[in-house]
């Protein structure tokens, strides 16, 4: 899985937005960088599509370097969340900057998504979920 970190795996060199792939155990981590709007949203879509094709349903979106998100960008999360959850996974959002978090918050995303401060927290939550499942 380590080979996924090769530079050519980063897509979206044309715009000021990019998605980087990382893996942590069974969890796929997407590092978002720049501004996610109607013009750049297809790159995040492609990334999530790839996760889906690879049957990776445990996804953490790290937004530490995300500067802006538009409603179109938020829509992508809506498009995938249901499917990921039905497959037993989740999309957790971590490390958002204050202004970006505010946009998520206005729409009520924290009520629907697991939005946490740090990536580690999200990983812990995934691990805990798995434990619960195994216990039950």
């Amino acid at each position: 899985m380590g080979r996924r970190e090769k530079p050519h795996e980063t897509i979206g060199n044309m715009s000021n937005f990019s998605v980087g792939f990382r893996a942590e155990a069974h969890i796929r981590i997407l590092d978002l960088k720049g501004e996610l709007d109607a013009h750049t949203v297809s790159e995040l879509e492609a990334a999530l599509q790839k996760c889906r094709e690879d049957k990776n349903h445990h996804i953490i979106v790290n937004g530490a370097h995300l500067q802006y998100i538009s409603s179109a960008g938020l829509g992508v999360f809506m498009a995938y969340i249901e499917e990921m959850r039905e497959a037993g996974g989740d999309i957790k959002i971590a490390g958002l900057q204050a202004n970006v978090y505010n946009i998520f918050d206005l729409l009520g995303f924290p009520l629907l998504f697991d939005i946490v401060k740090a990536e580690e927290e999200a990983i812990r939550k995934f691990d805990a979920d798995r434990k619960d499942k195994n216990d039950s």
């Binding site: 979206g12 879509e45 990334a47 790839k50 094709e53």
Partner: peptide, 8 residues
């Protein structure tokens, strides 16, 4: 083609 929404 990333435009087709898939990297595969």
């Amino acid at each position: 083609d990333e435009r087709s929404g898939s990297l595969r």
